[in-house]
Design a protein around this nucleic acid. Structure first.
Lengths: 239, 239
DNA sequence: CCCTTTGAGTTGTACTGTACAACTTATATG
DNA sequence: CATATAAGTTGTACAGTACAACTCAAAGGG
């Protein structure tokens, strides 16, 4: 990369733009929703007034790391401090941003339904059902990122406890099952579902919860708020 | 690129350094190995003479995209043009590179055992068994990246056809099983393994292959060279 | 040329987890 | 108190793995 005499310095390379975007999911009214923000209309901004995923440039003075940057953007938009946050992937090429070669680090977050949807911010921020959001023409390559996020979420829901992060605690098993079904888009068997959740031993009981109708249900909390539980897959080992 | 009135331009942000690193796996002598390169000792280079993952700066003039950049680096180091190549994740913070705030996009590649290990390049390039490589003190945060890659590979091997990309075609089912066992570090049941591979229908027969001893075995090729097959997981749907 | 060795490939039983469906139990409401 | 509603359980069928014994084909030695 360098020859003995002519020292080739890092600064000799033209540096791409670096951004972080966050796909923030929640479940509202039995629908998987994603948070979109409206691009500013100021002069010089690309994709003015277009809907986009929340995100923006890494600030090398404020952000200690990419993760910290993602957390900051999430906190700014939702006020949520410690959600489930996972890296989704990165996208970078010469043309995705008209301002130059740019790369974005995408994260995805799962949060319980936000209490109050701030009405004043409704013109610049909106919770949109996923399938509907995916059909809008979003800024940059955000349609690709959103699709990937939805795909990844659906895929992981098949064998992890991710949906538990979409519910406020304590939640009941039927509530949790409904979230699984909403995300997956298909019904699940009740008894198999319950067995799987309880056998995995990632929930702890948190007292009975009474609903509007019918029998009261056991409420549960996550034992570990930090990470998702992976349910047993195949190639079982004898260990 | 910007108009006179604009308050806040993209170029107002100090741009981080952007690199791409590739974790290249293969199987040699019944061991999972990874390719390491030696850092240059020239003046000004960080981590001189340290072993590192192959990678380097994105060249905005040559690389159309991050993936193209990863492919270029892989081609440069191995000559392999169309391997299995998947994004692993990205790492970025203020301190990982002494030259400044930097972020790297890491990829991982699977290639069949390279024919001839170029002896002339042996001082700057080396295939190292994974567990051994993980114990070396690598440059930057490459120990973290390598660990993540190994973990991801092991995890995906449990439910995908990834090991097939580590073998030259045609390969036999016993050979494939051995690769699975090498990567996973535990023996697998022969009959369950065979049933799973054949039921997935991702292989096509390619004539008998005779080994050194014993009965000849059926050779197989991948139907699709592009993507891995995911074996059935749980929450089976009735569709 | 047979017989043994080696590895490929098959068969069969036990066990575990899901699929499907009927059932019991607990709470709110008229 | 009867009924509706939802929580939670039980039981049978089926599919996939675990474990282990078996058959089959090719190479090599006496």
């Amino acid at each position: 990369m360098s020859s003995p005499r002519v020292v080739f310095r890092a600064t000799d390379f033209e540096r791409p733009l670096v951004t972080v975007d966050v796909v923030i999911f929640t479940v509202m009214a039995e629908q998987l929703c994603v948070l979109l923000v409206r691009r500013p209309e100021s002069d010089g901004e690309p994709y003015p007034a277009r809907w986009a995923l929340p995100g923006g440039f890494v600030d090398v003075d404020r952000d200690a790391s990419l993760l910290a940057c993602a957390e900051r953007k999430l906190r700014d938009k939702t006020g949520v401090a410690a959600p489930y946050l996972e890296q989704l992937g990165s996208w970078g090429d010469a043309k995705r941003d008209p301002r130059g070669w740019s790369s974005t680090h995408a994260y995805f977050a799962l949060i319980p339904q936000p209490e109050a949807v701030d009405a004043s911010a409704t013109t610049t921020t909106e919770w949109v059902p996923c399938d509907q959001a995916a059909r809008r023409r979003l800024a940059f390559d955000h349609n690709t990122i959103l699709s990937t996020a939805i795909e990844r979420l659906r895929s992981k829901v098949e064998y992890t406890s991710l949906p538990a992060f979409l519910l406020p605690e304590p939640f009941t098993l039927p509530q949790l099952q409904r979230v699984y079904e909403v995300v997956l888009g298909r019904p699940l068997d009740k008894s198999a579902f319950r067995k799987r959740m309880l056998d995995a031993d990632y929930l702890e009981e948190a007292g009975m919860v009474t609903g509007d109708h019918g029998r009261a249900a056991m409420g549960y909390r996550l034992r570990e708020r930090d990470q998702a539980t992976v349910f047993p897959r195949t190639f079982k080992s004898g260990e």
